[in-house]
Amino acid sequence: MIELENVAYSYGGGELLSDVSLRLAPGSFHFLTGPSGSGKTTFLKLCYGELVPTSGFARIFDQDVRSMTRDDIAMARRRIGVVHQDCQFLDHLPISDNVALPLTVAGFDVQSESQNLAELMQWCGLTPRANALPPELSGGERQRAALARAVILSPDLILADEPTGNVDWEMSQRLLQLLIELNRMGKTVMIATHDLGLIRAAKQHVQARVLRISNRRLQLAGADL
């Protein structure tokens, strides 16, 4: 579903990523690791069309990113759930509306989806906070709300950037559990993290491959970690 072929990316200065090739197969579970500043976020942005490679080819759902219009990318985003490191919400709308936002912008009738929305909020443990505004949420609640928003359109692919970045261990286990559940439902998952404990914990439950960015290149890390 996502294919990168000899992709390089530079922000001006030197290249941050070079010669990256990868095929994300449906239903796979990947971790992406590497030191901070190594380009994990950039890599994810290449995967959801936020950035266009400076050289090489990126294909999202078999479409070359360079040939995609802004609206094509918007349509692709409806099939890719993204959880950002610093989750951004519409701060003037309550959490339930924020979680339903992808439905709203895609033109679905939010009323008729209210049952699904309630179940998802329940599943993420957000029901008691449904009417709170985003700035009132704790870090863990924000991460869960971002995850809920990322999956409400039932995307084929979930990209999560440090989803456990600012939550405690217990909360990170719950978030991981949510992502593993989603993977069991057939979603492709990629999690960028530098938390090796999280990766070890995940490996007990799911067949996960670990990609590591080092020296500007993407490598498949060994089975042992």
Binding site: R70, D71, A74, M75, R77, Q88, L101, V105
Partner: peptide, 15 residues
């Protein structure tokens, strides 16, 4: 920021 969020969740420019 609002535009960025909308874009992230798949809103087209027209919307």
């Amino acid at each position: 920021k609002v535009i960025e969020v909308l874009r992230l969740v798949g809103a087209q420019d027209r919307y």
